[in-house]
Design a protein around this nucleic acid. Structure first.
Length: 106
DNA sequence: TTTATGGCTGTCA
DNA sequence: ATGACAGCCATAA
């Protein structure tokens, strides 16, 4: 895979892989870092199609509200929360995390 | 090339 | 705070 010809999807993967454990990033943030500001939806779309075999920390990507986005399978939604909590990320009663505190800063 | 589809995001009522 | 709406944009048909 070459630098120029790499797909947006691959760029997203590269960014997500850099998110430290115990930290989270928003879709919009990932899109911007991937070089495509405004392509937040595509980030979610790309992650939804991402094979787990890649060991991608997709659970660290959440929406701008600081909550886990609604998924087709509610089970994955819960799984994502579990993974994050296992990393030390705390959710409040509303099921949201304090972005001001856990947001990944480059 | 045009359409349809979304793990989104701001803005406004 | 919540819900509706309209932009945004890469992929697959």
């Amino acid at each position: 895979m070459e630098d120029k010809s790499r797909t947006f999807q691959q760029a997203v993967y590269a960014v997500v892989r850099r998110i430290p454990e115990g930290r989270v990033a928003t879709y919009g943030q990932v899109a911007a870092l991937a070089g495509r500001p405004g392509a937040a939806r595509q980030v979610g779309y790309a992650l939804a199609a991402a094979p787990r075999e890649l060991g991608l920390p997709w659970q660290r990507v959440i929406n701008a509200h600081g909550e886990v986005s609604r998924r087709a399978d509610p089970g994955d939604e819960e799984y994502q929360r579990l993974l994050l909590q296992a990393e030390g990320v705390v959710f409040d009663e509303r099921g949201r995390v304090a972005l001001s505190r856990y947001r990944w800063q480059v």
